[in-house]
Simulated assay, not measured.
Amino acid sequence: MKARGRAVAVRLDLRGVKCPLNWARAKVRLEQMARGEVLELTLDDPRGARDIPGAAEAEGYAVLESTARDGIFHLRIER
């Protein structure tokens, strides 16, 4: 089994996509992934960056990381 947070990540660039559509797209991608895989999201929507971690955890996913720099947000979510 791959170490938590060290698995090869699937990247999804959601810059320009507003909430709640950015979560809908992320959720569809997560559902297509295997358990243990990690989805890396890039967002520029502050509302999505705030809401997606809670929505992901409510669906049973693990939020590994949430960072922001210069108005760009990066989330790592494990399936």
Results as ranks from 00 to 15, higher is better:
residue 24 A to D: 12
residue 78 E to W: 14
residue 14 L to W: 01
residue 69 R to M: 06
residue 42 T to P: 10
residue 63 V to Y: 14
residue 58 A to Y: 11
residue 55 A to Y: 11
residue 25 R to P: 03
residue 50 R to Y: 12
residue 39 L to Y: 00
residue 22 N to M: 06
residue 72 I to S: 10
residue 59 E to W: 13
residue 39 L to K: 14
residue 62 A to Y: 09
residue 63 V to P: 10
residue 72 I to D: 06
residue 66 S to D: 03
residue 52 I to D: 12
residue 63 V to E: 10
residue 78 E to L: 03
residue 33 M to K: 03
residue 19 C to I: 09
residue 53 P to A: 06
residue 23 W to T: 07
residue 69 R to S: 12
residue 18 K to I: 02
residue 66 S to V: 14
residue 1 M to Q: 10
residue 48 G to M: 09
residue 37 E to C: 11
residue 62 A to D: 07
residue 67 T to I: 00
residue 55 A to W: 15
residue 8 V to Y: 08
residue 56 A to G: 06
residue 76 R to W: 02
residue 57 E to R: 15
residue 29 R to Y: 00
residue 46 P to I: 01
residue 53 P to Y: 01
residue 17 V to I: 00
residue 52 I to M: 14
residue 43 L to R: 09
residue 7 A to F: 12
residue 37 E to W: 03
residue 49 A to G: 06
residue 55 A to I: 13
residue 13 D to F: 00
residue 70 D to E: 10
residue 4 R to E: 09
residue 3 A to P: 02
residue 70 D to M: 13
residue 75 L to I: 02
residue 56 A to C: 05
residue 71 G to L: 02
residue 35 R to A: 08
residue 36 G to A: 10
residue 27 K to T: 07
residue 42 T to K: 14
residue 15 R to Q: 04
residue 16 G to D: 05
residue 63 V to I: 08
residue 17 V to C: 02
residue 37 E to D: 00
residue 9 A to M: 15
residue 7 A to Y: 13
residue 4 R to P: 05
residue 41 L to K: 05
residue 25 R to D: 13
